[in-house]
Design a protein around this nucleic acid. Sequence first.
RNA 1: GGGGUCGUAGUUCAGUUGGUUAGAACGCUGCCCUGUCACGGCAGAGGCCGCGGGUUCGAGUCCCGUCGACCCCGCCA
Length: 590
Amino acid sequence: MCGELRASDAGSKVVLMGWVNRRRDLGNLIFLDLRDRSGVTQVVITADAGAEVHDRATAVRSEFVVAVLGHVKLRDANTVNKNIPTGEIEVIADELRVLNDCKPLPFSPSDAVLANEEVRLKYRYIDLRRPELHRNIELRHQVAIAIRDHLNAQGFYEIETPFMTRSTPEGARDYLVPSRVHAGKFYALPQSPQLFKQILMISGFDKYFQIVRCFRDEDLRADRQPEFTQIDLEISFARPEIVFHTVEGFLKAAFATIGVDLATPFPQTSYDQAIRLYGIDKPDLRLPAMTHVREAFAAENLETLHVDSELPVVAIVIPKVGELSRKERDEIKAMFGDRKDAKVFEDLKRLEKSFPEAVAKIRELAKPNPEDLVVIVAGAKRTEPASAVKSGQQAYGVYSAAGQLRLALGQRYAERHGAYKHGNFRLLWVTDFPMFEWDETEQRWNAAHHPFTSPHEQDMDKLESDPGGVRALAYDVVLNGTELGSGSIRIHRQDIQSKIFKAMGMSPEEQQARFGFFLEALQYGTPPHGGIALGLDRIVMILAGAESLREVIPFPKTAKAIDLMVDAPTPVSERQLKELGIAVVGKKDL
RNA sequence: GGGGUCGUAGUUCAGUUGGUUAGAACGCUGCCCUGUCACGGCAGAGGCCGCGGGUUCGAGUCCCGUCGACCCCGCCA
């Protein structure tokens, strides 16, 4: 193939087929860079090839598909191209056939500057010819194969589950599929195969996995597409450690495809700890944790600074930032924004003038190097005394504000601290998530992970008295501040499952209507089980060093969930609608 | 739903304080060229300045609306 010929092939006769990446026409001498998925080789057409071949080579343009019959020749020393793997050789053409021509392109795969994404997505087949995208798609293949092989070797079965299934209104919005046979009824595309894999455990397939498409009708982000691929797995008689070990195993295999030897096991931290040290439930370990420094201040210091003595005071350290200008310090204040609940002290030196002992103590606690940026975030003085619950929320507010600032500063000074350079992979397990979170709009408790997650044994008695204090046997695996996957030990007892539904405000009748089949299944000998699902797209994105999922998904959708190439979604004919018993009302009428 | 960035030739971009005929590079067409590798040289074609409205003697430029791409918040059990 085009990318495979080397000096050792000199003298051999070859047939190359591929796309014309570039043509350099010097009159009687023409060079073609011939490209296929393996790479590029320079083809030389000299006068020796004859007038007919020369004429065809003259007519050839970018992205023509051609076949070349020729022989491999070592290049003269002064014409070797060290920039490409095949640069030591070239193919002297004896014969050239145009297999297909190519209209002038909207953009060329060999362009150095990319066309805008709208054009690239419309002509995705051209964009995909770029070596970068080829590499990403190949990497995706390699990663999937590595994970399959690993899980297969561990005794997992890959088992398919239905795409046309039942709508569950919890969680993300469903994509619906109308039923023709049952007019007015709908299937839903799975947000995940959650219940099916749990049923498979009940059926005795004690190690299941699937690399499977999932669908969620929510707004998109750079790292969120409406259809995405999960590495989904479930294990009977599982403890979290078994799931962790399995995931660590296949991620190690996945990272090995880019030559990275991942250290296992990954560190673990509880949700509470993550919030306290990073202000977020998906900590980016590439930057130092925050340090608690409230003790550094005397009570009257806090009073003077209008800082609440009950709320956290944390120091953010960003390494190697160096001296900041007045303008840059103002920028930090702007990043932090105007908040009622928390305040920022971005100038440690100024703080030091008024509170030398406190700042000395902060330095002792946070241990910054001289070049490091240190920023303090504290809770703003509250006007009214708060309840314990409220206090907890306010503390969370301070941590969260600090965590966001930490990430913003990390971004802003990425070049200086260098911790974001590609190849720095920091994985982490976050455990003991809260079971429920309070839904302000619905005024009820919602499952933080999903309602099939088992609560901690010790927290069972709080289910009714203190839902907010119940910890779940749920865990996330986090890479560089991105949630790669999320899982839990599941409920395997019908009575507990029912209790959880009840805690979420579901009446027995509702439970029956929505999850009756599952509550029944749980009663027929359900083994304890647990599992996890990881986003394959995100893993590949990070391994590839890509900024967006679109770089690792062959046919992605835009931020408005449109496929620009095939132009989907589209209206459908009256006849199709009628057959399905569906009438479309305009969005304005809703 | 909210906030931000962007939209000018096929592509990437420039376009001054609102002022004559909207420029460049790459690509395209034609010609020249035997050692190029982002080949080079000469000539040429190519524009609803996203779309609609407004202000103005005059709008690519100012204002309002709208559409689209991207990023973020909300949302994502």
